[in-house]
Amino acid sequence: MSCEKIFLIAGEASGDQHAADLVRNLKLLNQDLRVYAVGGEGLKRAGARIIVRSSELSVVGAVEVLHHIRPILKAYRRVVNWLESERPSLLILVDFPEFNLLIAKKAKALGIPVFYFISPQIWAWRQGRVRKIKRLVDRMAVILPFEKDFYRNYGIDVEFVGHPLLDSVKPRMSREEFFNKFSIPGSARLVCLLPGSRSGEIRRHLNLFLKTAGKISRQHPDCSFCLPLAPGLSGDIERFINKGVRDFTKSSKLEVYLVRDSAHDAMAASDLVIAASGTVTLEAAILRVPMIVTYRLAPLTYFAGRLLVRVKWVSLVNLIAGRQVVPEILQDKAIPENLCDQALRLLEDHEARTAMIRQLDEIVGLLGKPGAAHRAASLVQSMLMQTHADKA
């Protein structure tokens, strides 16, 4: 299988990280494997050749997609042209269902096997897509404990491999070292602000999070605030963040420490995380840091979502627990006053903090064992070997 080619699509920052781990494990099994991808810096560092940058595709919601339709269509055409000309041995999809299932349909028509690593959250909404997945996807590796039964009930070939965050969420420095590196006052309580990884999320949440920080600070002047920069941000969105933080600091006299390449250290060093709902909530859970989860969507997207969503909670932490462990403050209720009230409760109430940390520990125990990317890579390798056996 020398110089075998596969194509991988990871359309978002979190998916890029998991896909990069998968590629590194695949290359341990097959050193001659050539990986081409839609992805970001993580995949590039892992040795994949980037055909389309994931930053061109990372949007959320129907309204937002309409505003970005031209780059999405351009990326679709580039990927399809590549598949038609190169005919890889396998297509690997990572989450990102709207784009990925379109590509899967084309791959199926070309006779290219399809492996899905990290399930789209169709169990939450638009469950009808599961029939499309059964038709287009040959095998799945899922990372949430309840997903295996969901897909197996539809007759899909699926394995639970554990959650890849168990391997990657590891602080590299102590709280004291983190405070020293970013010149944060050593006696301060620290609140970590995580407004999202996509440009639309950041534009919707940044001002909300900064205003919340201002309100918390008025009640607790000893609090400091940090804001980790998500990997793979475009230059435009980094400038948006820098300007927003700079203007806020100028008007409020409250410094918010921007943190690059140390998000897990920032969370681990913090007394509280305020996060836009997403994978980052599981990262905070693995680090056992109390958190508040919030989210805002474009009004039309939110209205449509309320008609379609079939789950009671939006955060992965609460979904895995099957109950509310962390507070969720959503859409019209996502205002600085409400976020501040919950933040003060978790900063001041020792029993509430301890209870949440204990429940987070239970949730992490449900995520499986480390080694998810290795187990997924073994499934990919077995698919490649089966493909060659079928052609022989």
Results as ranks from 00 to 15, higher is better:
Asn180Trp: 09
Lys211Arg: 15
Asn100Pro: 11
Ser85Arg: 14
Ala298Ile: 03
Ile286Trp: 04
Cys3Tyr: 12
Leu360Trp: 09
Arg375Phe: 06
Arg189Tyr: 05
Lys211Trp: 06
Ile112Leu: 02
Ile292Trp: 11
Leu57Gly: 09
Leu227Ile: 06
Ile363Trp: 01
Ser382Cys: 00
Cys226Lys: 10
Val169Ser: 13
Ser252Glu: 13
Glu4Ala: 03
Ala188Gln: 06
Leu90Cys: 12
Ile292Ser: 04
Ile335Arg: 15
Lys106Gly: 02
Ala389Trp: 14
Asp32Thr: 12
Glu64Leu: 11
Tyr76Lys: 10
Leu344Phe: 08
Val79Phe: 04
Gly39Thr: 11
Gly365Phe: 09
Glu177Ser: 12
Asp265Cys: 11
Asp265Met: 12
Val94Leu: 08
Ile237Gly: 02
Asp271Ser: 13
Gln121Lys: 15
Tyr295Phe: 04
Leu282Met: 10
Lys27Arg: 14
Arg49Asp: 11
Arg78Tyr: 05
Val35Asn: 10
Asn180Thr: 06
Val289Trp: 14
Leu258Phe: 08
Lys312Asn: 12
His374Glu: 14
Gly111Asn: 01
Val79Glu: 04
Gly15Met: 07
Val59Gly: 06
Ser197Phe: 06
Gly11Ala: 00
Gly47Arg: 11
Leu193Ala: 07
Val325Gly: 02
Lys105Ser: 15
Gly214Ile: 06
Gln381Ala: 04
Lys333Asp: 15
His388Trp: 13
Ser217Arg: 12
Phe115Asp: 10
Asn242Pro: 04
